[in-house]
Nucleic acid binder design. Structure first.
Lengths: 219, 219
DNA sequence: CCACTACCGACTGTAAACAGTTGACTTATG
DNA sequence: CATAAGTCAACTGTTTACAGTCGGTAGTGG
């Protein structure tokens, strides 16, 4: 039994459904499956080498995440976002993240949490010269962490339900525009506001951040 | 062709999946399937007279709505909400509905929308002597309308994703406690704030409303 | 040339069968 | 009696097969 060092813990055998889900989500948010494209079940199941039944479960979930839209007779296609929808998505996102910030502000002993947030910013900083994808990734991680640290599972879940739409929005505007919004300083401001416990400042900063991001993306 | 009046338009042939979804959602939020109960696919599919494949699609959706929680090896059970989770749910709900109110405040010509909101309050008022279920129903309708009238589909969708959890929360505390929060006056206050365009007052009213509701439910 | 019909292909809705895994119960053994 | 191996039943994960419906297209009659 000795010598089987690392790969013992957590052999990551996800179900095919989850694998399909990840694969499709990535394909959509990366633009490999372009908006408006009709998804044919038989076609996809053959591509992914899984059965239709398994695939359909994944498709339902993507539909609920807002990445797919259903046409007549259950025909699914990749959702197309217009400018208003992007603004709407970022408005909801701002509301959720504002709640996160306010919640964090009310935690008495939040030094540890602040530390975690600074860490994710450090990752962003380190990724500044990396690929666009990695930069987007680190940005998303910061905002997801913001929600997770509140300990409010419902908040985190709502945010994650929006994550796919957010990624589609970024793709819509083009990654180059997307990364423009990811200034390290902007994020430090948010953390600073939380650190001092100034909920309304945090809220204001986040709303400005989101408004600016949405505007950049649709311009 | 004449004389076939009403039943022509919209023959409501929902798919079995949607029917199962509604049936299960109702069963859970009404307490017929009590929290913590294990759901066995074969058992349910026989009860509902549908195949497992069709059922599983519905179950996935309920899982994502937060009505079901997945145990080891994919075993699903009806989610059990504790007091903190209820408070968390209502905090997110408050954030979403505050956004709705603020959005409505910014619509220049909102007389028509105000009118719609008053109508739903009238329905609530008319239901005051009806069954507890109907009173809950009319209350939910008001809040859903609040979100729908914004025209922000993402907001509406996020709220609806939370709807099941909200209903579970109400059931957790008991319908008697639930309806205590549904005062007509409280709701009129919200509409009044929106009518005058006072976003911060609307926000404040909604937050108080939600805090009170959550507190009542867990007490 | 136009319209109407009958067929055909493609795709989703639904059902039923197969496979693998886990936990409980039983049995054998020291 | 306690413990370990073995057996079995209960589920979920996954696949395969079948049925129904819509859209298009070719063929036919006026």
């Amino acid at each position: 039994m000795a010598g089987l060092t690392a790969p013992l813990l957590g052999l990551e055998k996800k179900s095919l459904r989850e694998q399909a889900l990840s694969a499709l989500r990535t394909a959509i948010t990366s633009g490999e499956l372009e908006p408006g494209r009709h998804l044919v079940e038989t076609e996809l199941s053959e591509m992914l080498q899984i059965s239709r039944g398994t695939l359909r479960e994944a498709l339902r979930q993507l539909e609920q995440e807002g990445l797919l839209s259903a046409g007549p007779r259950g025909r699914l296609s990749v959702r197309h976002l217009d400018e208003k929808e992007i603004r709407d998505i970022f408005a909801v996102r701002a509301a959720l993240e504002s709640l996160a910030a306010r919640t964090l502000c009310e935690i008495p002993d939040r030094a540890q949490l602040i530390q975690s947030l600074h860490q994710t910013i450090d990752v962003m900083k380190a990724a500044q010269d990396a690929s666009l994808e990695e930069r987007v990734e680190s940005d998303m991680e910061f905002h997801r962490t913001l929600c997770r640290l509140t300990g409010n599972e419902t908040l985190l879940h709502s945010w994650e339900s929006l994550e796919g739409s957010i990624r589609m929005s970024i793709m819509f505007g083009g990654l180059e525009k997307g990364v423009k919004n990811m200034s390290v300083n902007r994020h430090r401001e948010i953390v600073a506001a939380i650190e001092t416990g100034d909920a309304s400042l945090a809220r204001k900063t986040i709303h400005e951040h989101m408004d600016a991001a949405a505007t950049t993306l649709v311009s």
